[in-house]
Amino acid sequence: MKKEIPSMVKDWQLIKKRREQLIEAAVQLMIVKGYHGTTTREIARAAGFSIGTLYEYIETKEDVLYLVCEHIHADVEEQLQAIISDIPAGKAGLEQAIRQFITMMDQMSDQVLLIYQESKALPKEMLRYVLAKELCITKIFETFIQRVAMEGSLPITAETIPLMAHNIVVLGQMWAFRRWALRKQYSLESYIQEQTHFLIRSILVQEVD
């Protein structure tokens, strides 16, 4: 689900090209200066066209932020789908999926942090679309965990599958949000190991109970 952003231009190939240019420029600027510290004139200049041309492809500065958030979420979703599709269900597969997701969050830390710091500036309707994309990413893990449960190597109950999916996504994002503190005590590798152990152990404890 995505919101359509109005454009004065009717050539969709050109719209796609120009918006890719402005998204790339906006991401780089907003990572450094934040949403409020970045002007549309700066975005247009960095994208290689005039401010007038920029407003042929969007209506407001909020449109740019929405396109940035949608682009980052789409990138995460595409990469996660690729990861999951190559991993067999089972305990080892779940551990591998967690590892690769947290590694991806490390590689995309600046972009992930950008969404969560700046998306609050979006109008309510746009923010609903952004939050819905977040749930789509969690749903990918939920579907994979259902496969793991059916495979039978871990005692995962139907009731805990959605919560576990949320836990994995949040623990991955936490590395991006709190890396400034976590890196004082953990390397990326040790963080992955500890969090994976924590998640798997929480499943095994349920079996004992």
Rank of each mutant, 00 (worst) to 15 (best):
T157H: 06
V9L: 06
Q13H: 13
I5C: 00
I43H: 02
E125P: 02
M30T: 06
R201V: 01
G48S: 07
Q13G: 13
I137S: 11
T60F: 03
Q193F: 04
E151N: 10
I84W: 06
P162F: 05
Q13C: 01
S202M: 08
L80R: 07
L199M: 15
E142P: 08
G52D: 04
M30A: 00
D110V: 02
E207C: 03
P155Q: 03
C136A: 15
T40D: 10
L171D: 03
Q28E: 15
A82F: 05
F101V: 06
C69Q: 02
Q173K: 14
L94I: 06
E134H: 11
W175Y: 14
R183A: 12
I168N: 04
E118A: 11
L29E: 06
L65A: 05
K10A: 12
I23W: 05
H166S: 11
C69W: 02
Y129E: 03
R45V: 06
E42G: 02
R19D: 05
M108F: 12
E207N: 09
M108D: 09
E189Q: 10
L80N: 05
S85Y: 09
Q107H: 15
S50Y: 04
T160V: 12
P88E: 14
W180M: 13
K17S: 12
V68M: 09
V9S: 04
L113C: 12
L22Q: 07
H36G: 09
R19P: 10
T157W: 02
L67M: 13
I51A: 07
A176N: 07
